[in-house]
């Protein structure tokens, strides 16, 4: 463990000042990634700033912009939140999959995003809901679409002194739903070999797909949208064969590596299967039958 100082600001202004301190400054949310990274000397730090006592970073509530999720709000709170379960079901699915109950009680969705692991389970669900990242920093706040937030494994657009304040998820329309599935060899407590989040908005009268979003975990250097698959679906009447075509197209967006968890070929096949299954869960949740 490196030697570092610790601060726990209670206001956003204080957090901005502390995060802009000289040296290597690390934001702390639930610490389920960071503390192990520090212990094993994979990360250094001169100052660790615990953001959990800043009210804005614990926000969980909706307004005209949509659902605001403070960057330090823990997965358990989202997993049990009625609004998240009703309107952002894929996010509810995924926050119940991160590690164990002990981990979910601490791990924040904001921490999952900022850790920027390609395997992060919650991130694809934020992507399919067109999440906006609100970034705080010494030169004021800025907003970035979450699709533009990731630069590479463990790398984001955050500059020195900047931190994630909250995520905003626009309210989804009626007759829409999202879903998330990942594949792991065990039942729980493992890192995704591949994961797929899907979102569908269907016109119930014509069964036309008004909007489709698909995002993938663990199959590229960053979480990625499967835009080719989305294009296959949008504007068409939903059917089993259309879902199959979209699932095949989703594989085009996967550029996986072969590692101990699975080969590249296996991961691509998982993307195809999980895309089909999550799209079907979306239809089920909307109440549309094929």
């Amino acid at each position: 463990m490196p030697t570092f100082d610790f601060a726990a600001p209670t206001t956003l202004a204080e957090a901005v000042t502390l995060m802009a301190s000289a040296g290597t400054v690390r934001a702390l949310a639930g610490g389920t990634d960071l503390i192990d990274q520090l212990k094993t000397n994979r990360r250094n730090a001169d100052l660790v700033v615990d953001l959990k006592r800043v009210p804005e970073l614990q926000r969980l509530g909706s307004d005209a912009d949509g659902l605001h999720i403070g960057a330090a709000r823990c997965c358990s709170d989202l997993h049990h939140d009625p609004t998240v379960n009703r309107l952002y079901a894929g996010l509810a699915d995924s926050t119940g999959l991160v590690g164990s109950v002990q981990i979910q009680n601490r791990a924040a969705v904001g921490g999952n995003v900022c850790n920027a692991a390609p395997s992060g389970d919650t991130t694809p669900n934020l992507l399919v809901h067109d999440a906006i990242a609100v970034i705080a920093g010494p030169s004021g706040a800025r907003r970035v679409e979450l699709t533009d937030f990731f630069v590479g494994p463990g790398q984001t657009v955050l500059q020195k002194g900047e931190f994630l304040q909250e995520l905003i998820l626009p309210a989804p329309p009626d007759d829409s739903a999202s879903a998330y599935l990942r594949f792991i060899p065990r039942n729980e407590m493992d890192i995704a070999v591949a994961g797929v989040a899907s979102f569908l908005h269907i016109d119930p009268a014509t069964k036309t797909v008004k909007k489709a979003r698909i995002a993938l975990a663990s199959v590229a250097p960053t979480p990625v949208r499967a835009r080719a698959a989305e294009a296959v679906l949008e504007g068409k009447v939903i059917s089993a064969s259309l879902i199959d075509a979209a699932s095949v197209a989703a594989v085009e967006s996967a550029t996986p590596i072969t590692d101990v968890r699975g080969s590249a070929e296996y991961r691509k096949e998982l993307v195809r299967v999980l895309t089909r299954r999550t799209l079907n869960i979306c239809l089920d949740r909307i109440g549309v039958s094929l």
Partner: peptide, 24 residues
């Protein structure tokens, strides 16, 4: 964070105390 032998209640919720910094 994997084994849970260090589980405590922190403000009433379970947490792995090996992944909590003391000043937190």
């Amino acid at each position: 964070g994997n084994c849970g032998a260090c589980t405590v209640l922190l403000d009433g919720k379970t947490a792995c105390s090996c992944l909590v910094l003391a000043p937190e």
